[in-house]
Simulated assay, not measured.
Amino acid sequence: MTRYITSRIGQALLVLWAAFTISFVLLQAMPGDAVLIKFQNPEYGLSPEQLADIRAAYAADGTVLTQYLHTAGRFLVGDFGYSLQAGVAVSAQLATNLPPTVRLAGFAFVVAVLIALLLAVLANIQGFGRLRGIIQSVPSLFVSVPTFWLGIMLIQIFSFRLRLVPVINPGPWEGLILPVLAVAVPISAPLAQILLRNIDQVKTRPFVAVARAKGASHAGVLWRHVAKNAILPVLTVGGVLFGELLAGAVITETVFGLNGIGSLTEQAVNFQDVAVLQAIVVLSAAAFVTINLLVDLLYPILDPRLKAKPETAR
Rank of each mutant, 00 (worst) to 15 (best):
G133H: 10
G133D: 10
G133M: 08
I134H: 02
S137K: 03
V138K: 04
P139K: 05
P139H: 06
S140N: 14
S140L: 14
S140F: 15
F142M: 11
F142R: 01
S144W: 10
P146H: 08
P146G: 03
T147Q: 14
T147A: 13
T147L: 07
W149F: 14
L150H: 08
L154Q: 12
Q156Y: 14
Q156I: 14
F158G: 05
S159I: 03
S159P: 03
F160W: 10
R161F: 09
L162Y: 12
R163S: 11
R163A: 13
V165I: 15
P166A: 08
P166K: 09
V167M: 11
I168F: 13
N169Y: 13
N169L: 13
N169H: 13
N169A: 15
P170W: 05
W173L: 14
W173E: 11
E174N: 04
E174W: 01
G175N: 07
L176P: 07
I177T: 03
I177F: 05
L178R: 06
L181H: 01
A182H: 01
V183Q: 07
A184K: 03
P186S: 04
P186H: 04
I187G: 00
I187D: 00
I187R: 03
I187V: 15
S188I: 04
A189F: 03
A189T: 03
P190R: 05
L191C: 00
L191I: 09
A192M: 06
Q193N: 12
I194E: 07
I194S: 02
I194H: 03
L195G: 02
R197L: 12
N198M: 13
I199C: 07
I199K: 07
I199M: 13
V202Y: 04
V202R: 08
T204H: 09
T204P: 00
R205A: 14
P206K: 04
A209M: 08
V210N: 09
V210F: 13
A211F: 10
A211H: 10
R212G: 01
R212Y: 01
A213C: 10
K214A: 07
K214P: 02
A216T: 11
S217L: 09
A219L: 13
A219Y: 07
L222D: 05
R224K: 15
R224A: 13
H225S: 06
A227M: 15
A227R: 07
N229I: 05
N229W: 06
N229M: 09
A230F: 12
A230Y: 11
I231Q: 02
I231S: 07
I231M: 13
L232E: 00
P233N: 11
V234G: 06
V234P: 05
L235C: 06
L235Q: 05
T236A: 12
T236M: 05
G238P: 01
G238N: 03
G238I: 02
G238M: 02
G238E: 04
G239A: 04
V240F: 11
V240W: 05
V240E: 01
L241D: 02
L241A: 08
F242W: 07
F242P: 03
G243P: 09
G243L: 09
E244L: 14
E244N: 15
E244T: 07
L245N: 03
L245Q: 02
A247C: 04
G248N: 12
G248Q: 07
V250C: 02
I251Q: 04
E253P: 12
T254S: 15
V255M: 08
G257M: 11
G257W: 11
N259Y: 11
N259R: 13
G260H: 04
G260F: 06
